[in-house]
Amino acid sequence: MLEIFQYQFMQRALIAAVLVSVACGVVGSYVVIKRIVSLSGAISHAAFGGVGIGYFLGVNPVLAAIPFSIISAIAIGGVKQISNISEDTSIGILWSVGMAIGVIFINLTPGYAPDLFSYLFGSILTVNNTDLYIMFILDMIIIVTVYLFRREFLAVAFDEEFSKVVGLPALLVYMLLLALVALSVVVLIKVVGVILLIALFTIPAAISKQYTYNLKNLMILATILGIVLTTLGLILSYIFNLASGATIVMVLATAFAISYYLKG
């Protein structure tokens, strides 16, 4: 079975699986413990707006998604501060408006958008070297940022109000965390697509949380689990000739169900 990894696209897919799992393990752990899963869902769908703008401007859609998703992440965090619009409402609005912007810009782009589907549902087998470089750099940014701000992220995730009392710039730290979510979204776009990526973000961390009470261990465990499950999904999708993003999501969901059953 291992001979399938002789193909170069399979090797790239495997590297991609590792790179997405790092982003998911590290940032996904915060997403799960801070309970910002639906907010992250909104950021991921909003990223599609960036993909559409990328098509329209003729630049790499993944690169175009970076500023766009960071801006939407910060908007969603900021709206709560300056208005009385609830976070729930702004999540709902951003979720669909981001998608709508993407669709309109793709409409406006002359010609046919060949790999549009892969941005929606992911296509780990078409990941190219440029994608891998982008993912690698974003992973590095994520790891360094988390290392530098680990005290702040933990304090804000645990008790935002108390962290303000001890003089921690809680809002700024929260925005930074959302910006990291946005960067992770970009890392994941090519592999599982904006619609499916929230599963990869959530499930490895949610499973790992059942087995450890230490945040660092949680991140490591979630990363390893992400690598194993994504690779398994990749192999199954190859064998059964199924869409890779959807297969990976189903493998993750199955693993979650089994783990929940064993622990519950």
Binding site: L154, A155, F158, D159, S163, V166
Partner: peptide, 13 residues
């Protein structure tokens, strides 16, 4: 994922 010691430590920020 936080223990008693880490919780109290956040008070020393």
């Amino acid at each position: 994922p936080i223990n008693v010691f880490e919780t109290v430590l956040t008070g020393r920020y």
